[in-house]
């Protein structure tokens, strides 16, 4: 009997993420890829001219981000849960922005709880029919640990006592 071998690579190598037409879906897909430790999937959602501002640091190129902070962001994504608190989107045509705030909870390396508010600004450009992220800016408001109930849905996150309101930064 003639033998034939069929080799299939499955599942984990998800490959480039499916085409995302809605900018918010691209943002959510990026977070999902981080959580899944899907390096290729995350990269497929990023534009070649990506610049990342992350807590005061700069990754000036896609390569710099991929090499330096993407693995760390995947570690953080796996250790935490990002609950969307507020989101606005705008722009027109091929240029869009998505501004989100998240409550980020989890456990750190010392088993201490993580419970913080995160601000995220994402700029996207459509090229070849697909939106890709060309800028991410993550930061935290001062006093970013929420102490009370956080308004769900479209409500604004509750600022920590003495902290400035967690207004999304300008795009």
């Amino acid at each position: 009997m003639k033998r034939a071998a069929l080799a299939l690579s499955l599942a984990v190598l998800a490959g480039p993420a499916a085409a995302q037409q809605i900018p918010t879906e691209v943002v959510d897909a990026f977070h999902s890829a981080l959580t899944r430790q899907d390096t290729a999937g995350a990269l497929s959602l990023l534009a070649r001219d990506l610049i990342v501002f992350e807590f005061g640091l700069v990754d000036p190129t896609l390569e710099a981000y991929a090499f330096q902070h993407l693995p760390l962001d995947m570690n953080f994504a796996a250790a935490t849960t990002w609950t969307l608190q507020t989101r606005r989107m705008g722009g027109s045509g091929d240029d869009r922005w998505v501004i989100s705030t998240y409550r980020v909870t989890g456990t750190d390396v010392n088993n201490a709880p993580i419970d913080s508010l995160y601000l995220e600004s994402v700029l996207l450009t459509r090229s070849g029919g697909n939106f890709r992220i060309n800028h991410i800016h993550w930061s935290q408001p001062s006093g970013a640990t929420p102490t009370g109930a956080v308004q769900g849905g479209a409500g604004a996150p509750a600022p920590a006592p003495g902290a400035a309101p967690a207004a999304p930064p300008a795009p």
């Binding site: 807590f55 000036p60 190129t61 710099a64 760390l72 962001d73 935490t80 750190d108 390396v109 935290q140």
Partner: peptide
């Protein structure tokens, strides 16, 4: 911010990077 190539010897921790274990 636009001209820096990635440097293997200069990975700087951002914000939360050091807080969680390696997955």
């Amino acid at each position: 911010i636009f001209g820096t190539a990635p440097s293997e010897a200069r990975v700087i921790l951002a914000g939360h990077d050091a807080d969680v274990p390696e997955v």
